[in-house]
């Protein structure tokens, strides 16, 4: 346990560059996605337990604080997917992609792609809270 805490501390305090932050964000987003997956398994299980408890859970899912968490999930999923492609490129074509310059550029591209996908999704997620109807969003 002490070594896990020490290595997390080292990961946060080391002044790495793009590759370091890409790795750290990949880890955090991966753990976040895992958390949501566990939550999803629990809510599906609750259908079998009883209608009331399942609906209470759904009510929680549509609450404002949970929407904030969903936005985190959206960002995490998009980032994890795009950065996963970056890692595959670096791993399978090292002669082309595995150098400090290209990987720094690729990280920036990953962030831009993540934001391009995340921003419309985030707007659509919070819009119902403000009674806004998204033209492309059919409820």
């Amino acid at each position: 346990m002490a070594s896990i805490v020490a290595s997390i501390w080292e990961g946060i305090t080391y002044r790495g560059r793009e590759g370091h932050w890409a790795w750290l964000l990949h880890r955090v987003s991966g753990l976040g996605i895992l958390l949501f997956l566990a939550l999803h398994i629990v809510d599906i299980y609750l259908i079998g337990v009883g209608k009331e408890i399942f609906e209470a859970f759904l009510f929680f899912y549509h609450s404002a604080p949970f929407k904030v968490l969903v936005m985190g999930l959206l960002f995490g999923v998009y980032y994890h997917a795009f950065n996963g492609v970056r890692i595959i490129l670096v791993d399978f074509w090292p002669e082309r992609f595995s150098n400090w310059k290209t990987q720094r550029l690729m990280f920036r591209v990953v962030i831009v792609l993540t934001l391009l996908a995340f921003i419309p999704s985030a707007i659509a997620t919070v819009a119902p809270l403000f009674n806004l109807h998204m033209p492309w969003w059919n409820h």
Binding site: Y14, G16, R17, E18, G19, H20, A22, W23, I87, V90, D91, P94, E95, S98, N99, W100, Q103
Partner: peptide, 19 residues
């Protein structure tokens, strides 16, 4: 190796270690 590139960024001999 998780292709973090810290090794490449700090190598005083500028070796492309991750490659």
């Amino acid at each position: 190796c998780r292709t973090v590139f810290n090794c490449v960024e700090c190598c005083p001999r500028e070796i492309n270690i991750t490659k």
